[in-house]
Amino acid sequence: MFGFFKNKYDNPALLEEIRQTEEKWFVFLDKLETRLDELCTAAVPELIAVFDQDTDPYKRAHGRMLTGLIGQINQMRQKAITAKEERIIPFMYASKSVLPDLISGAGREYHDRLYRFQMACFDRHHQFEDKINEGITALRSAEGNRGLEATYQQQIAEFERIKDKFLCKQCGGKMSIPKMYFIATYIQCPFCQTQNTYTPSTEMQLLFHQARPLAEQRTAHLLRAYETQHPKNPVLYQQYLRAMFDEWNKITPDMVAENERFYLRLLKDHSINHY
């Protein structure tokens, strides 16, 4: 006989090392996950509180807090990646290198064990990555109420209050602002025909940039209807887009021509990208 089966490979120390490394990796990721969970759970109400306290129209304090939190989460993500690259993967290679060649058959069960180790560690890492992404999504969606509709209605009321209260700077004649403007514009005095320059309030000017978010908020249910249906129905998207632009045009009627050109582009992009 050639003694093929006599050379059975035996290395209990390696088996133990594999077991310990796997356990260590799992414990490490468990700890990170617990910390991640704890951070996100505690951060969500705080983010909403900061959002509500933030007087800046762009909500920049909230933005800073959010990027800071995501920075911490990414730090945990990086910790796991570094450990995988520096500890798990090198361990796999180092262990493989001491085993008899795979084709010899002698160390077969060790190769299988290492393969199972690799799969288990990588799967666990994928799960961790999923948790990281879930955490980031939860933080991103933790916003207070922007109150766009209320702000918009307030500005309409404010405009109604002031629109007839201006006097021509040239002749003192009573002037009326014909509609809600979001940018400075020329208005002619009906008495002396002088071109006056009307500048809307800062709040009114800022509101222009909230027109699309407000229109999106008003039509969010239509977008949800599209997004929750599987397979996706492009007709529902088109319905949403049309309704959103209709609302947008109602808020900023002076921009209808420009909005409609943008609408056509979005409609075209959507049909190219998805269908």
Binding site: K24, W25, F28, K31, L32, R35, L39, Q72, Q75, M76, K79, A83, R87
Partner: peptide
């Protein structure tokens, strides 16, 4: 420091 500084492999 960062929130996960104490967690090591």
């Amino acid at each position: 420091g960062n929130v996960a500084d104490d967690i090591e492999f």
